[in-house]
Design a protein around this nucleic acid. Structure first.
Lengths: 223, 223
DNA sequence: ACAAAAGTGTTGTATATACACCCATGA
DNA sequence: TCATGGGTGTATATACAACACTTTTGT
């Protein structure tokens, strides 16, 4: 008879990187930890996986309870299992990332234990959360280039300038207005709503919508 | 006091999609299951995570024991946790994929419980292994376009035709010889060894090597 | 001398980039 | 009438795609 070593019995958590764009800046929703370890520090929202729950359900639960949002885009990122990542013992985390239009976070934002922090300003976080954040940020940039995920950072109707801002903020550099419009309109993923923006002190912009609200990959990459 | 539901206590496995190219065909290493469930069927090699083991270590263990290879390229793919994926109960699997040059699998291949099967011919596998395989296959195709992973499917020295074959087999279509050579040589990732292939009944091909053996992402994508 | 794969350039077409002015509105 | 962002076209450079013949070796 072969003797097998014991199976691992790690605990499993789900952590979620919730991105939004506010005031032209890419931000992440962080929560202040209520308990040890790292009590009082800002960290990625997450929690233990409950019995009879899938990862996706746990991620939805985190999004609902911490950010008070439903039906937003999210996907699994990566599973982090560095044995030293949690001082409490063997805890692995299945990281996810989500994208939420800033307007939909207004309800929760009044709180002091939940804040939207510019990604570029974050220097330290508990556990391996910096690593998770970097990973999510990179995935977001890449994904922007071959999918329609931008829809999930905008209201249903938006102007081309708002759409362009999403790209500029995430890519971290400006893009040419005319070329951007030519390209994005050639992709056949957005359409005119027929409405126009009102109440601005300049020429009203036409409002567009994504033809498909829901994740889709582009036939031809944007970059 | 809040009452929290119990934490999940799933078991954790690691499954590995081991790709290789043999006779101009993309193949996967499958092992015949020795025990229930699905006893006797071909499935992706894998196993339970052991105590005090990281996912990467478990993946290396699978690669060593099932494929008898060391120091090959592999990376984590995705964590599959569909609650019905394993009839034994709550078992989640952290899937990985690995790339191995066919020559390095010669040692193990004599066995009847381990076989290299063309990806396109695989119609059914136990658990959610078909889903894992599709996911890996897609990742491989994508990765080929923005990284140097092709190195991990070839011997250290190779001809441009062999390199081209790697791309054609994975992409599933032919590419133009002159355009391919122009492009690949413009990327600055391969160099001449100075050696030539011998013993063929045609003009000897120059042998190249990858400048960097180890994973790297291209500055400029190939496609 | 024949078979088999290696090796090599040019041209047309499509795509990407750079760039500046007029327009519609609110104040 | 002024300030603000909305909206548009062209010219040039670069990248991609299509394509055929000569070379070197083994038999």
């Amino acid at each position: 008879m072969k003797v097998r070593p014991p199976k691992a019995q790690p605990e499993i958590t789900v952590d979620t990187v919730i991105f939004t764009i506010e005031e032209g800046v890419l931000k992440v929703l962080l929560v202040r930890r209520g308990g040890d370890p790292y009590k009082g520090q800002l960290a990625l929202p997450g929690g233990f996986l409950w019995a009879n729950e899938t990862m996706a359900q746990a991620a939805v639960r985190v999004l609902t309870t911490k950010a008070n949002v439903k039906d937003v885009f999210f996907e699994q990122l990566y599973t982090f299992d560095n044995p030293k990542r949690d001082t409490r013992g063997h805890v692995i985390t299945v990281a996810h990332f989500a994208l939420v239009p800033a307007q939909r976070l207004r309800s929760i934002r009044l709180d002091e234990n939940v804040s939207l922090v510019p990604v570029k300003s974050i220097k330290r976080m508990p556990f391996d959360h910096m690593e998770i954040l970097s990973y999510a940020d990179k995935r977001l940039r890449t994904k922007l280039g071959y999918s329609n995920v931008a829809y999930s950072l905008l209201p249903e109707a938006f102007t081309l300038s708002q759409l362009q801002e999403v790209y500029e903020v995430i890519l971290g550099h400006e893009v040419d207005k005319r070329n951007f419009r030519k390209k994005i309109q050639s992709l056949d993923i957005i359409e005119l709503t027929g409405q126009k923006q009102t109440g601005r002190k300049h020429r009203p912009a036409r409002l567009f919508r994504f033809k498909k609200r829901g994740y889709a990959e582009l036939e031809e990459p944007l970059f």
